[in-house]
Design a protein around this nucleic acid. Structure first.
Lengths: 157, 157
DNA sequence: TCCTTTTCCGACTCCGTTGCTAGGATTTCC
DNA sequence: GGAAATCCTAGCAACGGAGTCGGAAAAGGA
């Protein structure tokens, strides 16, 4: 039940944008090099983020991407949703908006499969964790880690 | 980030065993037919559950499977862990026992990737949801749904 | 003693998704 | 005009997930 690499990359990308929020737009190339991620794949990732309205872009030389709103206003469930397509622990949850619970195993015999209660709880646990975390927190978290990494470089390995 | 079908099947299987707890052992064949699941695949599923000590088996004619302990004592995180192999939202969490947080992106440059905070929270959200649900609850939940399904069969579709 | 029912075990196949690359078109700045 | 960037579409290779198959071993019953 791991999230995809795409989601991981996307979150890293958003954090990078949050870090450089004051400067002009940041190019994908810069982010790819800094984070050690494949540029051509990042293009796909950032496309999802843009479609969801989380980042804005400017084309041409000196172009790049920017956060669409301040990092403190970005809840991580928006980000993960945009990247993952859906936040559902089970297939049958995918097409369910909110309360209209429909399990694909319905109609067979029972009105609801016995596992529904479990997946509902898991889903709400995940969503609550994501909603309760802002992009700003992650940016700050990273900033607090970085200095140590430079100070005791190689000491941990 | 959906759970695998194997996990879904395994949970259904456990619920079925919980339902028949008073009788003798239940054969896989019976469960497969009742739940509409492929028997040959269920064999793999139940093998994981047995390896984890969640079910016991008796071979030969009139053999089958039984819960290793009362349904009320089975927390669902044990079950999902046995089936899924690990409860980790990201690859790099897999080999981490509990507190010894190690991200595979470590050693590259930063002491911890910026996304760690997020995945930690998600993981704990999932684990808490699973730990807080017992197999007995699911059995009971199913029992409460079943009668309605028989009463108004086809009315919902 | 043999037959049936079951668990048990390993190998094998099929298929969809994931992660990634390639190539080009378009926009913008110098 | 050229360099630097976003944008768009197609394609591909590999991996894992879901499921099948065949057979061995154990246990009960006639």
């Amino acid at each position: 039940m791991t999230f995809s690499a795409k989601t991981e990359y996307g979150v890293r990308l958003m954090v990078a944008l949050g870090r450089d929020a004051h400067d002009g737009p940041t190019s994908l190339k810069a982010i790819a090099e800094a984070e050690g991620l494949p540029l051509s794949y990042l293009e796909h990732v950032v496309a999802s983020l843009k479609r969801a309205g989380l980042v804005t872009s400017s084309r041409g030389a000196h172009g790049g991407y920017r956060l669409a709103k301040p990092a403190a206003d970005v809840a991580m469930d928006e980000v993960v949703l945009a990247l993952e397509g859906a936040i559902a622990p089970m297939e049958c949850f995918v097409h369910v908006p909110t309360e209209r619970v429909a399990c694909s195993h319905q109609g067979d015999r029972s009105a609801a499969c016995s596992t529904r209660l479990l997946w509902m709880r898991v889903q709400s646990g995940v969503v609550r964790a994501l909603q309760g975390t802002t992009l700003a927190e992650l940016v700050e978290f990273e900033a607090r880690q970085e200095p140590r990494a430079e100070a005791q470089a190689g000491a941990v390995a």
